[in-house]
Nucleic acid binder design. Structure first.
Length: 412
DNA sequence: TCTGGGGTCCTAGGACCC
DNA sequence: TCTGGGGTCCTAGGACCC
């Protein structure tokens, strides 16, 4: 097959567990039965667990309380988020020096396209290349990874599960069809609980089951898009390219409370915190956004979202917060129940130095004042230098001296 | 034993414009 | 006087992934 691609998927072995141990050698580093996740005052879940803990049936996404019932001797530590982001960045940058096309698919997974690199790697086999990359990553970032390979992303993704932990598994071009037949449909990325349920209703559980169904019937049962998609995947076909890292499309922050909120003022306090966190990240990346969204999860786990798009990109904490507060107020008018979770997000992002659309200001003028933007940036610098404790939530939007912009409602 | 937090992508309907 | 179809943007909801 002359024009087949050579794709690798590099996947860090229990990434959060490894990073937790590296960041805390005396604590997490000493626990062989380690769970990384939220204790969450009863509402936390497992983010990742050591293989020894998984033997007890612990899985990521499982409530931590349940995980501890399954494995009572396990140690639970929180997710070292900053250390994980930093370690992930180091891996990505190292990979970029080794391979022409790198796509970070998540914090701990990287697709590599080696197509056309034969000369670069002097006719090294994909196995040799993968082992070499694995050793480099381990030596320079202290992270153990596994690597799967094949003619496309789907096959590489399934292959990496065979490689774990700490190995390499390459499926040769032409063998992908037979390789796929070893799997249940549930293992195909993109087949989630819902799709699986409708597959099972048709009596389809394994790839082999589905291979016996003509495309026409798959389309009739699951729709044109899904049917065609499945018909390809079960044959090991996946045309999606490895695309070098794209820009971020949204930024959000949300929080589940240990007990449901009923006091509107308390909700507002949390909304402010969430808005500040989103705003900080936004400005850190030098971005502005046009669509602000909020998320409210009620006591009964019913989740609602609402968003508003404005004519110009915004970046100030004040605008984010005031919009979020309005949107949440609207949602809560319809359903004034105790609130389990609140979230704030921004999308429709643009570069922060993009020219503002002056002609769109209309009669209302700019959406946020230069003063609000400047104030947000000043706070970023204070936070950077002294930590966030200095900024008291109640005064987080105020500069202290007289302000030429309207105060938020309810404030003097 | 109730279900985190960060994302991406898709769909469908309505508004609006040409 | 009645009527088309395509494109784009926005919103809400949902599936899915790590």
């Amino acid at each position: 097959v002359t024009n087949s691609r050579r794709i690798l998927l590099l996947d860090c072995d229990m990434f959060f567990v490894q990073v937790a141990r590296l960041s805390d050698p005396g604590g997490a580093g000493r626990a062989s039965l380690l769970i990384v996740g939220g204790s969450g005052e009863g509402r936390g879940v497992v983010t990742s667990a050591d293989y020894e803990v998984r033997k007890f049936g612990v899985r990521s996404g499982m409530p931590t309380a349940r995980a501890l019932r399954l494995c009572p001797d396990a140690t639970v530590v929180g997710v070292p988020r900053k250390a994980c982001v930093e370690r992930s960045r180091r891996i990505r940058e190292l990979l970029r020096t080794l391979v022409p096309v790198v796509q970070a698919a998540s914090i701990d997974e990287f697709y590599l396209d080696l197509t056309g690199t034969d000369r670069l790697f002097r006719d090294e086999s994909p196995e040799e290349t993968a082992h070499r990359i694995r050793e480099r990553i381990l030596a320079e970032t202290e992270i153990s990874v596994s690597i799967g390979g094949g003619p496309n992303r789907l096959v590489a993704k399934l292959a990496v599960e065979r490689a774990k932990p700490g190995g390499v598994h390459i499926v040769p071009a032409g063998a992908e069809g037979d390789f796929l037949r070893e799997f249940d449909l549930a293992r195909i990325p993109g087949v989630g609980p819902r799709f699986l349920e409708s597959l099972e209703r048709r009596g389809l559980r394994t790839v082999d089951d589905a291979l016996r169904v003509e495309r026409e019937w798959l389309v009739r049962w699951f729709g044109e898009a899904r049917g065609t998609w499945l018909h390809e995947r079960i044959r090991g076909i996946d045309p999606t390219p490895v695309v070098p890292d794209e820009e971020r499309k949204s930024i959000s922050s949300e929080r589940t409370f240990s007990t449901d909120l009923t006091d509107p003022r308390e909700m507002e306090r949390h909304l402010l915190q969430l808005s500040l966190s989103v705003g900080r990240t936004l400005r850190e990346k030098g971005l502005r956004g046009r669509t602000i969204s909020v998320k409210v999860r009620d006591m009964d786990f019913n989740t609602r979202q609402s968003s508003r798009t404005v004519a110009q990109g915004v970046e100030s904490d004040r605008f984010l917060f005031e919009t979020a507060r309005d949107l949440v107020a609207e949602l809560r008018r319809a359903h004034p129940e105790p609130v389990r979770l609140l979230g704030v997000g921004i999308s429709n992002l643009e570069e922060g130095d993009a020219p503002r659309q002056l002609e769109l200001f209309g009669e209302e003028g700019p959406l946020e004042s230069e003063r609000d933007r400047a104030l947000s940036r000043v706070k970023d610098r204070v936070r950077e230098r002294f930590g966030s404790d200095l900024l008291v939530p109640g005064r987080a939007l105020e500069s202290g001296d007289d302000d030429d912009t309207p105060s938020p409602e309810g404030k003097p």
